[in-house]
């Protein structure tokens, strides 16, 4: 599979259907790279004409903004919006709900107005359109799955159903945690917590959340965010359940089933 970037498309005088915004986690973090690859495999297989920004992509500035560093956020926003606008991008898909939120809600005020879609919604649409067909009910047939709502997809943007609809396409049992949907609990990474040690407390947020997920008895914890995936994986390891319980992004689950 060859993945083209925007510059290559532009050089051929072409515009891709959609810009795949990979995000920093998806680009650099080894665990998250697997999500990135899974998603591009799906795009490739379905035949979506997509491009990445490649080396031209920069952090959206989300962790800086949430930490309180508005200057840095505005700098990053300025650069990214200029780059993307120069390519005439109309539609952006991303595997990171933090990037998604910034693109959908925060860049428009700064001159970056695009149709923005999170990869779980994108996958749901492809399934509904019949472009993705899961083989024999998928690779997780008969397994018990629980789904973790990320804060910035769920509460932040009110997207609760699209990811669940993708999971329902699998021949599996979807069990909800006590805290789900608008009442879902954070994995502990948001608000730039990913990049610092937690404040002193009695437990770690990701340990607490992973315990809630394990309580459901599910063997797959489905996530929609590279940060949640990392945090929950650590939480599962803390309970020494990593052999029996897997934390997977919904894109990985789909990629394994087509």
């Amino acid at each position: 599979m060859s993945i083209k970037n925007m510059a290559e498309y532009a050089a051929n005088g072409e515009v891709p259907e959609v810009l795949f915004w990979v995000g920093c986690a998806g680009s650099f973090d080894q665990r998250a790279q697997r999500i990135t690859r899974a998603f591009t495999q799906i795009l490739d297989k379905v035949g979506v004409k997509f491009a990445i920004l490649g080396k031209e992509e920069m952090c959206t500035g989300d962790p800086a903004r949430r930490a309180g560093n508005e200057f840095l956020f505005q700098m990053m926003a300025y650069n990214n919006i200029n780059t993307i606008n120069a390519y005439g991008v109309k539609k952006v898909v991303t595997i990171c709900p933090h990037c998604f939120n910034v693109f959908k809600n925060e860049y428009p005020k700064l001159g970056g107005d695009y149709e923005v879609i999170h990869h779980t919604t994108f996958l749901q649409q492809l399934i509904n359109e019949g472009k993705i067909v899961l083989k024999d009910g998928g690779a997780f047939k008969g397994k018990k799955i629980t789904y973790h709502d990320s804060c910035y997809l769920g509460r932040g943007n009110g997207i609760y159903e699209a990811p669940r609809e993708v999971l329902q396409a699998f021949d599996t049992e979807l069990v909800e945690m006590k805290r789900c949907r608008s009442n879902g609990m954070c994995c502990g990474a948001g608000g730039a917590q990913m990049f610092k040690e937690e404040e002193t407390g009695t437990n770690r947020v990701n340990f607490e959340r992973a315990e809630q997920a394990l309580e459901t008895g599910a063997t797959i914890i489905a996530a929609n965010c590279p940060f949640c995936t990392t945090m929950l994986t650590d939480g599962v390891k803390n309970k020494e359940k990593e052999d029996s319980v897997k934390v997977l992004d919904i894109a990985e689950m789909v990629a394994m089933s087509i």
Partner: peptide, 25 residues
């Protein structure tokens, strides 16, 4: 956090990776 800010400013990512490796995946 200061390191994260520095990384974003210099490497365009919150971690200390080379921007040249952004598409290495």
């Amino acid at each position: 956090w200061n390191m994260m800010f520095g990384n974003i400013e210099n490497n365009m990512a919150p971690w200390k990776f080379s921007p040249d490796d952004r598409d290495a995946w």
